[in-house]
Amino acid sequence: MSDSVYQRSVTAASGSGQPVREQVQDYWDLLKPRVMTLVVFSGIAGLIVAPGSLHPVLAAVAILCIAVSAGAAGAINMWYDRDIDAVMARTKRRPIPTGRVEPSEALAFGIVLTIFSVMVMGLAVNWTAAALLALATLFYVFVYTIWLKRRTPQNIVIGGAAGAFPPMIGWAAVTGTVDPGSILLFGLIFMWTPPHFWALSLYRCEDYAKVGVPMLPVVAGKAATKRQMLLYTLLLLPLAPLPAVMGLTGWLYGVAALLLGLAFVGHALRVLRSPEADGEDHKPAKAMFKFSLTYLFGLFGLMMLDKAPGLVAFVGLGG
């Protein structure tokens, strides 16, 4: 990987005379905290929906390990993508392109946090959850970031598996197993990721084209991307209520999931019908991207609310 573009864009030496508070903020930014929020939220959902109970301290440890591992993967991703991050408008202010953090320090930071989170999960909780945690990070770094992202327009479809692991990890923290219920939770995020990210790529298309990342709108065009987005939202429509069918949740969740799914399909239809002119079709795509976050938070939030009467038992305080 060439560092020429990255090196030309660096505007300051990393950490030179930088206040401690700003240095801490830079390393916090390396963890991609906004992405981490969704990871932690879905991981908590897996913990709560899973059958069985877990001591509250161990539950907190499991959540911490999921958060730290996700952040570590984000830091390694920023290390590898520092050349294209320096060019893209969305990422050029990240800590590495601006020179606030050295690439080698970011890589070391990510590796140390990965090892720490996996070992703590294994020693404190169980090794099934630890193995899934390690697999999620390895998949994100090696399969998505290094192998797929710059080679195929299916990067998000396949690479999305990395972000789908957290509820499985939370489930395994409680049960020590991988069960059909946890695979279903995995599948929800896996199917949600393409329309979510393609909505973003529709209005960031020029950014990706500029750095040679073959996102679907760049390679296949916006019209084909919009059709694929509608297809995935239609596939999600019957999938999202399945936790109620399987008995993981009550039917209130099932009905709400169906309504959320219909709204998601509605957004996809509006994007599909939007004009091709860049200045006009950004608004529906941006609206769908924002709603996609509401959709996933809504699904997992409803699952946890459905289990609310059993939360005391879940944390091991039910006697």
Rank of each mutant, 00 (worst) to 15 (best):
G254A: 09
L272C: 06
P275F: 04
W251F: 04
G181T: 09
V49H: 01
A45E: 07
L184R: 03
R90I: 12
L296E: 04
H282Y: 10
I48T: 12
L236F: 08
E280P: 00
A308I: 10
Y80S: 11
P214K: 04
T193R: 02
G176M: 05
S117P: 01
Y253L: 06
A59F: 11
F197I: 11
V61G: 00
T193L: 09
G110I: 08
V87L: 12
K286P: 03
G310W: 09
F297T: 09
P195E: 06
P97I: 10
L272T: 04
P167H: 08
W171S: 02
D3A: 13
L252F: 14
I111A: 13
A70P: 01
K226W: 07
P195V: 03
E102Y: 05
V120T: 07
L200K: 02
I156V: 15
P95S: 07
A199Q: 01
T175L: 04
A134Q: 13
T233R: 04
M191C: 04
G266S: 12
P214Y: 06
D179G: 08
D3Q: 13
M1F: 13
D306G: 03
T249S: 15
P194F: 01
R100M: 05
K283S: 14
M288A: 13
F165K: 07
M229A: 07
G74W: 11
L64N: 00
A13W: 09
P195Q: 03
A129N: 02
A73D: 10
P195F: 00
T249G: 08
A129W: 04
F139L: 05
D26C: 01
V245Q: 06
L64H: 01
L237A: 06
Q23E: 15
D207S: 06
G247C: 07
L31F: 10
V120C: 03
S182V: 08
P103Y: 11
P103L: 10
R8V: 02
L252N: 13
G319S: 15
T177A: 15
A50G: 04
A13T: 11
G122N: 08
N155P: 10
M119T: 15
L234R: 05
G301K: 01
L216Q: 12
F297K: 00
M303S: 06
L30A: 00
D281A: 09
